[in-house]
Amino acid sequence: MLMVENLSTSIGGTPILEGLDLSVGAGEVHAIMGPNGSGKSTFAHALAGRDGYEIGGTATLDGVDLLAMDPEARAAAGLFIGFQYPVEIPGVNNMYFLRTALNSVRRARGEEEIGARDFLAVAREAMELVEMKKDFLNRSVNAGFSGGEKKRNEILQMAIMRPRLALLDETDSGLDIDALQIIAAGVNSLRSPERSVVIITHYQRLLDYIKPDVVHVLVGGRIVDSGDHTLAHYLEDHGYANFVNHDPDSAPGRPLTGTAS
């Protein structure tokens, strides 16, 4: 489904990603882990089409070249990013925002727009999924939300948008255990053979609730290792030190626990 090959990204001439390869099949859940500043968010935004990046390599979703498109076209192609730092938009009603987003995507795909009443039903369902209070929809997009509420709002949006590929950037940071479980339940319920999920995280904690098929380690702008979920446990115990400081010529600094996909 998602094919990323030799993706490089630099900002103002400073390279951040250098030759990143990643392939995510339909229905799979992948996790990307890596130390602070290793380029995880940059990867998400390079896929989503944020301005200001110089990009090389290729990235396709269902065979469609993502990198050639505007951000909204990538969204219409089925890409959803759960932002690490969701943006506040004062005065814009959350519900209105979501419906406009959904209908924009539907319109772009030549689908019929969804009416206010039908939308409300869709939104209600999605809200139950993330156990969100009703008044949430009537507040401004992320404005004055707590950190946890913003993250829930991202999941809510994902549940409403029903993307082909959801890339969740540190959606678990700053959440207490209860919120974490709610979010995990939300993600799990959206798992389907047609939908793939990439979870960017620091902690293996979330992966206890959302079992990834593959875990990748992103260090220094490229995927340096991949394995099954036990890799996450390894990282939890040993940190990234063995990946960060290892001599490029020697073998990777951890015993092989799984096979790269």
Partner: peptide, 17 residues
């Protein structure tokens, strides 16, 4: 950018904001 990631055109996003 946030609005566009959610599928809106730049004009719509501007108008909405």
């Amino acid at each position: 950018y946030y609005c566009r990631q959610r599928g809106m055109t730049e004009e719509d996003a501007m108008s909405m904001i």
